[in-house]
């Protein structure tokens, strides 16, 4: 026993509407997740690896700290 064509069309349309309607009720996260990219450029050498300090990080740090402390004029006047 087969359904008349018009009834089949109505049933199919109803089923499609039901699927579409219920699909809209589905909950999906709409918050975008951003991920920090990784550096894509050329590699750089550290400041202490240059010709002036030749990899001596402690000497570089000491030189820079000394230079930074020199910005305090109270150190120079007292």
């Amino acid at each position: 026993m087969s359904m008349p064509v018009s009834k089949r069309i109505v049933t199919a349309a109803f089923a499609a509407a039901l699927v579409g309607g219920l699909g809209a009720c589905g909950e999906k996260s709409q918050v975008a997740v951003y991920e920090q990219g990784t550096y894509q450029g050329k590699a750089d050498t550290a400041a202490w690896d240059g010709p002036a300090f030749k990899g001596d990080r402690a000497a570089w740090e000491a030189a820079l700290k000394n230079r930074a402390r020199g910005q305090n004029e109270y150190n120079r006047t007292e």
């Binding site: 400041a47 202490w48 690896d49 240059g50 010709p51 002036a52 300090f53 570089w60 030189a63 820079l64 700290k65 230079r67 930074a68 402390r69 910005q71 305090n72 004029e73």
Partner: peptide
């Protein structure tokens, strides 16, 4: 590249009133 020479940024080193400070944050 002044940092590689053990020097601080020139803007701070040139500041006449020492308003602009540069270097390691703790110092």
């Amino acid at each position: 590249n002044r940092l590689a020479e053990g020097k601080l940024p020139l803007c701070a080193e040139m500041c006449s009133t020492k308003a602009l400070l540069a270097g390691d944050a703790s110092v």
